[in-house]
Amino acid sequence: MTTSSTAVDQTAGPAAAGARGGKLRRSSSTSTIDSKRQWWGWIFTTPFTIVFVLFLIVPLSYAFWMSLHNKGIATGGESVFVGIDNYVRAFTDPIFLDGLLLVARFVAVMVPIQIGVALLCALVLDTLATQLSKASRLLIFVPYAVPAVIGALMWGFLYSPRFGPAQDLFGLFGLAAPDFLSSSMIFTSLVNIVTWQWVGYYMIIIYAALRTIDPSVYEAARIDGANGAQIALRIKVPMVSSSMVMVVIFSLIGTLQFFTEPTVLRSVAQGAIPPDYTPNMYAYSLAFSYSQFNYASTIAFALGIFVFIGSYLFLYLTRKQSGLKS
């Protein structure tokens, strides 16, 4: 979704500059007005730039700086430069490595399920134009408007053996309900919460992209003898692949930063979710329970690098599908 525009920019940039250069040679007066006017670009972007620098560039650089220093009783309360010591510690820290592995497992399971369900819903919705399909489109989307904390609280209630409906539902079939909050089920339970929360949003994005396809394409395919499934798989999916890539990126970035749902569920599933379950939870507890801000920053920064590399790699691998290839 993204780099294509840069690529376009980069190619358009010199061409446009050349065009302007041509104009410049012809009359210098227009070019001064023109270049003066371009200053407005900086004026318009300045307010955002200030926030961008203060709340993204500065914290990011500061996190990096902190990760290269240590501060504590051992250093007499002074920040001492320690080089990559914190990173060596992080990448030999079994808690951090386990956390990384866990979120990688969440990515491997959660992203395909979310995108698959969202795509299926969008494809089905795209073939229908009834009141019922409109209503279900809204109902599937509604969880997006529910904060993750509230979503996790609700599912915590539903999972709870004390007041959830699971006992009654499984009882109908003469089965005992599994304990959704036990350590063997918690992974599945969390996948379910996140899927519930986000599928509607992804579905709307894919659906909106499907609606922009010219229906005459389907007519042509139908004349050539393609059936509904073939049209969906061979025409619709490839034509919305750029929004699929975007949705996967959203899902990937969100999942690697997994924090809210396990934190909220922790109070009902103490045994199954340790305080350092995911890397973000680990960083939080290092900072706010143990005041190890330097090491917490290292964890956060290392995770950030993983997210960045992961999403970049994905964009690179799918550059063809997303139309990012110049």
Partner: peptide, 19 residues
């Protein structure tokens, strides 16, 4: 700007807190 879309915002929370 595009690169920053991929920066996980939670990575910024702890340094933002200290600042």
């Amino acid at each position: 700007l595009l690169g920053s879309v991929m920066v996980p915002l939670t990575a910024l929370t702890i340094p933002t807190f200290v600042l």
